[in-house]
Design a protein around this nucleic acid. Structure first.
Lengths: 236, 236
DNA sequence: TAGTTGAGTGAACAGACGTTCACTCAACGG
DNA sequence: CCGTTGAGTGAACGTCTGTTCACTCAACTA
C-alpha cells in the first residue's frame, strides 16, 4: 500500500461529480429535464472517469471503492448500483477503451489501404488517438501487465483480435505474397507489439511525442523493409 | 482494493520465515553459528522474497507492509529495520533483478559475438534466464508500467543502459556498417523492445515456452534480415 | 567481563477499508 | 392518480492499514 502524491502526466479532464438528489430544486426555470435512465448513466460515467483518474496515480488493484465513491461525490454503497466490484468496473473500462480504439483502426484501414502509405498514413492517426484518449491508453498499458487476471485476459484477447485483423489485412493487401499464412500472423504480431510499445511511450512521456513518432517511423520502416525482403521457409 | 485469490503462475520457491529470537535455545548441539550480520541479511532476503511473492498476485502498490511482515513471520515494525518504505524495497528488487540480468547478458555477448549466431545463440540463453528468474521478470514486467514512479523510472533507466550496450555491440560487430550511429541506436531499441515483449510472454504463459520461442526466433529473423537490408538516410 | 548496539517485540493509535442493512423519495407505469 | 421501482443515503460492523513508542536481550566491542 504505497501512497501516491498525484503526479499524473496526461489529462485535466475533470471528473463530473453527481449532485445527489436535489435534482428538483431547480434554481433556474427548467433546463434539467433528466430522465431516471439519464441520471443513472451520468453517475455511471462519473464512476468510470473517477476510477480512470484514480488508477492513473497507481493502478486498479490499488484503489478502493470508497476513494472512487468520494471522488464521484456519492456514498460508497451507491457504487454497487452500477458495478458489482472494482474488477467488473475494470472490465467495463477495457471494453470502452477498445471500442474507441477499434473505431480508430477503421480509419487507419481506410486511409492506408496501399502499402506505400502504410507507415506515414497510419502512425499519425494512431498518435492522435493516443493523445486524445491518453488516460484510456495509460489504463490499458498498466492493467495489461499489472491488472487483475480477468482484466489482463480481456486486454490480451482484444489485442489478439486486432492482430488477427491486421493479419488478414496484410494478406489482402498482397504486400507479403511469398509469406505463409502463419508467418503473416507473426508479422502482424510483430507490428502490433511494436505499436503497443510505442503507445506506451507516448503515454509515459507525451512531451516527446514528436521525437518518439519520428523514431518509431524509422523503426517501422526498418522492420517492414526488412520483413518484406524476407522469405517464408514453411508452407502455407 | 481488489482482493486476489493467489493464482500465481510461476514459482514454488518457498519464502524462508525467520524464527524470531530463540536462536539460542539450540535443540541440537551447535549447527547454527550465525553472526548478527548474517541473521540480518537472512531476514532482509526473506522480506525481499515475501514481497516478490505477494506482489505476484497483484502488484507492489497493492500490497501492504503488514502482509509482508506476516509472510516473513516477523512483527510489522521489524520491516523498518531493513527498508524505509515499500517503494525503497521495490527499488532494491529492481536492483537485484537487473544485477542478475546483466550477468546473463555478459554470457550472451560472449556466446554470440558473430552476427550469424546472434539469434540462435542468444534466445535460448535469455529464455533460460527468464525461466530461472521467473518471479523477478514478472516483477519487472508489472512494475515497469504499473509501479510507483521512482520504480518505473529505475526500470526504464536500466533498460536504456542495456539498449546502449547492445548498440555499441552492434556497432562493434560491424553487422550494420552502413547505419548511422543514431540508427544503430534505433535498431538496438527495436530489438530490446521486442525481447522485453517476448520476456513478458514467457512469464505470462510459461507452458507455451517452446512455441513462444520458435515464433520469436522467426520474428527476430524477419526483423534482422530486413533491418540489415535497410539503409540509413541520415548522416553519422 | 562490563557496556553498547540494534534486530525484533508488542501494545496502542486513528483512520480507511468492504459490505450489510433499513431507509428515503423522485421518477416511472398502469 | 396511486402503487412500484430503484438510485442514492447514512449508520454500523469487524478487519486491516501505516506509524509511534518504550521495551528486551543476544551479539558485538573495547
Amino acid at each position: 500500500m504505497i501512497h501516491r502524491t498525484s503526479v499524473h502526466t496526461c489529462p485535466p479532464k475533470a471528473v463530473e461529480a453527481v449532485p445527489y438528489d436535489r435534482a428538483m430544486q431547480e434554481t433556474a426555470e427548467a433546463d434539467d429535464g433528466e430522465s431516471r435512465a439519464e441520471r443513472k448513466e451520468r453517475t455511471r460515467r462519473a464512476i468510470l472517469d473517477a476510477a480512470l483518474a484514480l488508477a492513473a496515480d497507481s493502478n486498479l488493484a490499488a484503489i478502493s471503492l470508497r476513494q472512487v465513491a468520494k471522488q464521484v461525490g456519492v456514498v460508497p454503497t451507491a457504487f454497487y448500483r452500477h458495478f458489482g466490484s472494482l474488477e467488473l468496473l475494470g472490465l467495463a473500462l477495457v471494453d470502452e477503451s477498445f471500442r474507441s480504439l477499434r473505431l480508430m483502426l477503421l480509419d487507419v484501414w481506410r486511409h492506408a489501404p496501399e502499402y506505400r502509405d502504410f507507415i506515414d498514413g497510419s502512425l499519425p492517426i494512431v498518435a492522435q488517438h493516443v493523445r486524445e484518449n491518453c488516460s484510456h491508453y495509460a489504463f490499458i498499458a498498466r492493467e495489461r501487465t499489472a491488472g487483475p487476471p480477468r482484466v489482463r485476459e480481456a486486454i490480451r484477447h482484444e489485442i489478439e483480435l486486432i492482430t488477427r485483423e491486421l493479419a488478414t489485412d496484410i494478406a489482402r493487401s498482397g504486400a507479403a505474397e511469398h509469406y505463409s499464412s502463419k508467418d503473416i500472423g507473426l508479422l502482424a504480431d510483430l507490428i502490433v507489439s511494436f505499436v503497443v510499445t510505442m503507445a506506451e511511450r507516448l503515454v509515459e512521456d507525451p512531451d516527446s511525442e514528436e521525437r518518439t513518432l519520428a523514431d518509431a517511423r524509422t523503426q517501422l520502416r526498418m522492420l517492414l523493409v526488412g520483413a518484406l525482403g524476407w522469405r517464408s521457409t514453411g508452407r502455407t
